[in-house]
Amino acid sequence: MADDKSGRDKQARDAERRQQEREIATELERGDETEPSVDPATLTDFEGELDELTFPATGTDVVAAVGDHELESVEGSYAIEELVPESDEETFDSPDAVRVQVRRPTVAAAMKRIVEASTTLRSTDLSWTQRKAYEMTFEELEAIDADDDDEGIRVIRDWITDRIHDEERLPSSREVRREAAKFCRANGYQVRNDEWLGI
């Protein structure tokens, strides 16, 4: 491969795609969910409907095909359109990628709002690594804030979308983690320095 800008860009895209595939495989194997899982029966029905889609598929394609499908979790019922960003810039390589997206409904709903808000930014792209960092922050808030109706997730989601609208930029993962840690400490949750939120 030529050592020019397009060659380096292709290498970076390929590396990111391989990382995504590894993370999806790891996520599917995980058994230690930090959030109540989606009811397996509704997930099975949903997977059957996904088989009718051609992959890779955009978020818009997924919502158009199965957006009204309801998934049941311990916390309640969620329509797929509440969990998957309706955007042509959001791409799913396989049904497994969609399944991973919807397994944690509160995190998925928060990320949907952020992804859709970020599409308004010019020349700024929500990279896979930044997205994963945001998701990890939400997962930590879910684990810490399990009994408080996901207030931490809503607060940080709104904080990120406010930065997107007001400052026209995506906050760095470090800024998001710092804000989440501030929320936790202000609400009496201990955050150690060796934890994800411990900045």
Rank of each mutant, 00 (worst) to 15 (best):
G7W: 02
D9K: 15
A15F: 08
R18G: 02
Q19N: 11
I24Y: 03
T26R: 15
T26A: 15
E29R: 15
E33V: 04
S37K: 13
V38Y: 01
D39I: 05
D51G: 14
D51C: 08
L53P: 01
T58R: 01
G59I: 05
A65F: 13
V66W: 00
E72S: 00
V74P: 00
S77N: 08
V84E: 02
E86M: 10
E90D: 12
S94A: 03
P95R: 00
P95L: 01
V98T: 06
V98N: 05
V100K: 10
Q101H: 06
R104T: 09
R104F: 02
P105F: 01
P105I: 01
V107M: 08
A108Q: 07
A109V: 05
A109W: 11
I114Y: 02
S118A: 15
L121H: 06
R122P: 02
R131D: 14
A133P: 00
Y134H: 09
T137S: 14
E142T: 14
D147N: 09
I156K: 04
I156Y: 07
W159L: 07
T161K: 09
I164V: 15
R174V: 08
A180I: 06
A181T: 06
A181Y: 03
F183L: 12
N193Q: 13
E195G: 10
L197N: 01
